[in-house]
C-alpha cells in the first residue's frame, strides 16, 4: 500500500505492508536509524518518536495510521548540529549516555515531556517517563530534564506574567 506522510519536515511516500510498524518503516525503508528496536511490544520506549507532536511508541504503531501525518524522529529534533534542542544540549551537559542505545527514545519522550510540563517536580519527571535503560543512566536523565526545563523557562517569552 502506498502511504504518504511527512518525516522531519520532508514529504515522503512509501509502498509497504500497511501493517508494518512505523519503527521499521523509518529505520529500514527511510534509513533513519536513530529510532531503536528494544521490545517490539510498547514496553521499553526505545522506539519513541513524535507523531503530530505526540510521543508514541512506533514499534506498535502500524504505518497505515500515519498517512498524511507528521513524524519527527531524533534526526529531526534540532535544526542543525549547532542549534541543539534543549534536551540534546542538556544530555551533553550532563554526560548522559552510556551504551546510548536507549537514549533516542528517552530524548524524544523527554522533549515531549518538557513541552507539556512547564514546571515539573522531580516526582512528576520520575512518573512522567517510563522508558527503560539497562545501563543505569536514570540519575543523569532526571538531572538533564530538570536542566532542560530551566533552559526552556529562561528562553520563553514571559508573556504570562
Amino acid at each position: 500500500m502506498k502511504i504518504d506522510f511527512i518525516v522531519n519536515d520532508k514529504p515522503i511516500s512509501v509502498d509497504v505492508d500497511p501493517d508494518m510498524p512505523l519503527l521499521w518503516v523509518v529505520r529500514d525503508e527511510l534509513g533513519l536509524k536513530a529510532t531503536k528496536y528494544g521490545c517490539g511490544k510498547a514496553l521499553c520506549g526505545a522506539c519513541t518518536l513524535h507523531l503530530d507532536g505526540d510521543a508514541i511508541r512506533s514499534c506498535s504503531f502500524p504505518v497505515q495510521y500515519v498517512a498524511n501525518k507528521k513524524v519527527r524522529t531524533l534526526e529531526g529534533l534540532c535544526l542543525n548540529k549547532e542549534t541543539l534542542h534543549p534536551i540534546q544540549q542538556t544530555w551533553i551537559d550532563e554526560n548522559v549516555p552510556q551504551c546510548g542505545y536507549c537514549q533516542p527514545g528517552f530524548m524524544m519522550a523527554a522533549a515531549k515531556f518538557i513541552e507539556t510540563n512547564d514546571n515539573p517536580t522531580e516526582e512528576e519527571i520520575k512518573s512522567g517517563i517510563t522508558n527503560i535503560c539497562r545501563c543505569g543512566t536514570q540519575p543523569r536523565i532526571i538531572k538533564a530534564i530538570k536542566r532542560a526545563v530551566a533552559i526552556k523557562q529562561s528562553t520563553q517569552p514571559k508573556d504570562k506574567l
Partner: peptide
C-alpha cells in the same frame, strides 16, 4: 562518543 549518541547516529 557523546555527540554521535546524542544525535542518534547509526
Amino acid at each position: 562518543d557523546l555527540r554521535p549518541k546524542v544525535f542518534g547516529e547509526p
